Amino acid sequence: MSRHALPRILPLTLALLLAACGNGEQVQQSIRPAMVVQPQPAADAVEAYPGEVRARFESELAFRIGGKVSKRLVDSGARVKKDQPLAELDPEDVRLQLEASRAQVAAAEANLKLVRAERDRYRTLLDRQLISHSQFDTVENQYRAGEARLKQIRAEFNVANNQAGYAVLRSQADGVISTRRVEVGQVVAAGQTVFTLAADGEREVLISLPEQSIDRFRIGQDVSVELWSQPGQRFPGRIRELSPAADPQSRTYAARVSFKDAKVPAELGQSARVFVQVNGEVPLSVPLSALTAEAGSPYVWVVDPESSRVKRTPVRIGAYGEDRVPVLEGLKAEDWVVAAGVQVLREGQEVRPVDRANRAVKMLAKE
C-alpha cells in the first residue's frame, strides 16, 4: 500500500470502528430537576439584626483627680450599691495639699487679726485728729486685702478638702460593673474611665444598622425582640434611639431598642435578635439560597415558563434577613426563581421545575 493512501484510509477506518461500537443514535442529555419558588410580597419579609442586651443607663466612672491607684475594691460583674467605694487613689499627695491649705488658712486668719487691730488703732488716732485720712485709708485697704486673702485661702482649702474625698471613687447608683479598666499601681489621669456601671432598671438591645438602608428606620418604630436564651419567643419593642452618625470603622449606625414590657427577663450581655417588618417598602423577597453573585453583582436564575430554560437575571437587593433577602429591582411577582442548586446552573439550561415536595410545577406563560 502506498504511503500516500494511508492518510485517506485512516479516518474512514476510525469512523467504521466508532459506528461498530455504538448503535448510531445520539445520546440525549438528561434534564435535571430544579426547585422553583415565586417571590413573596414584602409584607412577608422580615429583617433580623443581631444585638446585645445593655442597660439603658450606662455610666463611665472616673476619678476627678489624677493619681496612683492604691486599692481596687470591685471587679467586672460585681453588683454594687449607691455610694459604695469602688477604688482608691494614694491619699498622700492630697493629704499634704490639704495640710498646706490648712496652714495657709491659719496664716491668713492671723494676718487678718493683725490688720484689724491696726485699723482699729488708726481709727482712734483719726478720731483724735492725730493722723490724716490718707494714712487711715492705707490701713483700711490693708484690712480689706486681708479679708479678701482669707476668703481666697478658705476657698482653696475647701477645694483641697473636696479633692481629698475625690481620692475614693464611689458608685453613682445601684447596678453592675460591666467593665473594669484599672489595676492597683496604675497611674490614672483625671477623667480617665476606670469602671463602666450598668445601672439597675430598664434593659435595651443595642444593634447596628447598615448605612444603605438607614432611611427605613425611625425613632419609635415598632419591632420585635428574640432573646437567645428563649428561642421562638418574641417580645414587642420599639426603636428608642438612633445614632445620627455612622461608626467610623464599621460604617453602621447604632440603634437602641427598648422593651415595651419592663418585666422582660433580659440579662446584661445576653445575645438577642431584633426583627423589623419592612412594611411594604421592599416589593419582593426571595430565599437566601436563590441568590448568587459574580464579581460582586448579585443575580438569580429565572425559569422561562414556555421553554423551561433558566436565564440569569441581575437584581438589586436590600439588607439580608434571617432566611430571605429583599429584592429592590429585577424581579416580578409572577416570575419563577430557582431556589436551590443555583451554583451548578448555566445560561439557557433546560430544567424540570419542581416544588419543595419534589412535585412537578406547572408554570403558565403570561399572555
Rank of each mutant, 00 (worst) to 15 (best):
T13C: 08
T193C: 09
A5R: 07
E99Q: 10
R352A: 14
R312M: 11
H4M: 09
L284I: 03
S76P: 05
P85E: 05
E118F: 00
Q26M: 09
V303W: 04
A319T: 12
A199E: 13
R79C: 00
E58F: 06
I214H: 05
R170T: 14
E147S: 00
A167Y: 08
V274T: 10
E47N: 06
R180Q: 14
R251Y: 08
V159R: 12
F259R: 08
V310L: 03
S289Q: 04
A48S: 13
M363Q: 11
A148V: 03
V53D: 07
A15Q: 00
R149F: 09
D335V: 07
S134F: 04
V300Y: 13
L86C: 07
W336K: 02
S271K: 08
S250T: 15
L268Y: 11
Q212C: 05
A199G: 01
P50W: 04
G66C: 07
K151L: 08
A48D: 06
E202Y: 04
W301L: 06
R359L: 08
A190N: 05
L197N: 14
S307L: 15
V257W: 11
R79Q: 10
R218I: 00
V361E: 07
L126S: 09
S229C: 01
A110P: 11
K362V: 13
Y253V: 15
L98M: 14
V342Q: 04
R312A: 14
D90N: 10
G201V: 09
K366E: 14
E211Q: 15
V344M: 03
A107K: 02
R72C: 14
S2Q: 11
Y253F: 15
M363N: 13
L328C: 03
Y299S: 06
G330T: 06
E147T: 08
V69T: 06
K68N: 13
Q277V: 02
V338T: 07
S258D: 15
L364E: 11
L114H: 13
I153G: 01
V327Q: 03
S297N: 11
D355V: 13
G280F: 02
R216M: 12
A189N: 09
Q186E: 15
G330R: 01
G24K: 04
T252I: 04
L328A: 07
A48W: 01
A45G: 14
Q349S: 06
D222Q: 12
L125H: 02
Q135M: 06
E241D: 07
V361S: 05
I207Q: 05
L130M: 10
